[in-house]
């Protein structure tokens, strides 16, 4: 029990530290949202006077008459009430609504792609490591090259090839905008169709890492005494490979997978930019470009909670897959 209390306490402190950094970092960035809005207004021929600026400041909460400490306290208070403020870039939408709309897209696309990449990488890695020295070894340099190629370049090449030239997949967006969003067949099938290409690029560029890691662990596990015992026991090769070798070789990758799940939310910026996907990565970019502090803070907070949550989950679940870590709890 003390173990869980200590773990929970640690994660609470980490959360507080993250929330605090989340408050200060955007304020250290150059630029001011009011300036940007004023500039936009000016471009469209609006009148720009001190009174207009003042009203914008009040409206956006960019009023700096409060001290930093007061701002910090009211920020914490608002967080507790689930109030992330109003987005400047998507004005007048609330930040929580903007995140709520875009987060499911990212989780579905990048989350599923990460899962597929992990499962595929582990399966291939286990096979390649088990049959070391066979033709399967030639998979490794191929996938490693794909992982080393800059992601945006790979994504653009695939988009040009599979979408523009071959016309297999739609090029942009998350769904066909002529359908209503909801649980109806037209919309879901359109969303799946739009998701395949971006997911493919994510899988192709990340599978090499999982594969290589798993393959190396598999090779070192195959030299363990319990593998020799399992072979001497006359177990079928498949069983030795899966229950004895892969089961043990996968342990480090599982820990890595949980961490990468935490970064699903943030890792989507590039993908969503290339494919104009309506996820949270695109929103983050938009927020940065427009000095939209509130939206940035909201998204960072979501990322932080996702990373911390994934790590907490691994900490607690790792004992299930590796009984040795349970000892002493």
């Amino acid at each position: 029990m003390r173990y869980y209390a200590r773990k929970t306490g640690f994660y609470l402190v980490a959360l507080w530290a993250a929330v605090t950094l989340n408050f200060f970092i955007p304020r250290m960035m150059p630029g001011n949202p009011v300036d940007i809005l004023m500039a936009k207004l000016q471009q469209r021929g609006g009148t720009v006077g001190p009174s207009v600026r003042r009203s914008y400041e009040l409206l956006l909460g960019a009023d700096h008459s409060d001290s930093l400490a007061q701002q910090y306290l009211s920020y914490l208070n608002n967080l507790l009430h689930g109030d992330f403020g109003i987005s400047v870039s998507a004005y007048p939408a609330k930040v929580s609504d903007v995140i709520g709309q875009s987060l499911p897209w990212t989780i579905a696309l990048v989350g599923l792609a990460t899962l597929i990449s992990f499962v595929l990488g582990l399966t291939l890695g286990a096979l390649v490591g088990w049959k070391r020295g066979s033709w399967l070894d030639s998979i490794i340099p191929g996938t490693t090259v794909l992982a080393a190629v800059p992601y945006f370049w790979l994504a653009l090449i695939l988009a040009a090839l599979l979408s523009s030239t071959l016309n297999w997949f739609p090029l942009l967006g998350g769904y066909d905008v002529t359908y209503d969003i909801g649980w109806n067949w037209d919309f879901v099938s359109s969303a799946v169709q739009h998701g395949i290409l971006p997911a493919l690029t994510i899988v192709i560029s990340s599978v090499g890492g999982w594969l290589l890691g798993m393959r190396n662990m598999m090779v070192s596990t195959a030299a363990e005494d319990y593998i020799l015992t399992a072979r001497a026991k006359g177990l079928r090769n498949r069983r030795v490979m899966i229950r004895y070798a892969a089961r043990n070789a996968a342990l480090p990758s599982v820990a890595g997978f949980a961490t990468s799940l935490g970064f699903v939310v943030s890792g989507s910026v590039m993908t969503e930019q290339v494919f104009s996907y309506p996820g949270i990565g695109g929103r983050l970019l938009q927020a940065v470009e427009n000095n939209d502090y509130a939206l940035m803070q909201g998204i960072f907070l979501v990322i932080t909670v996702a990373v911390l949550g994934a790590n907490l989950l691994v900490d607690l679940l790792y004992g299930l897959i590796d009984p040795r870590t349970r000892a002493g709890n």
Binding site: E224, D225, A232, R247, N248
Partner: peptide, 24 residues
């Protein structure tokens, strides 16, 4: 060979520590 192993000839290995699968 697989059927022969263990059913007619079994082995006890040196490393008592490592001859058993640690996670099952």
């Amino acid at each position: 060979l697989r059927r022969f192993r263990w059913s007619k000839l079994s082995m006890v290995f040196q490393g008592a520590m490592n001859a058993l699968n640690p996670v099952t």
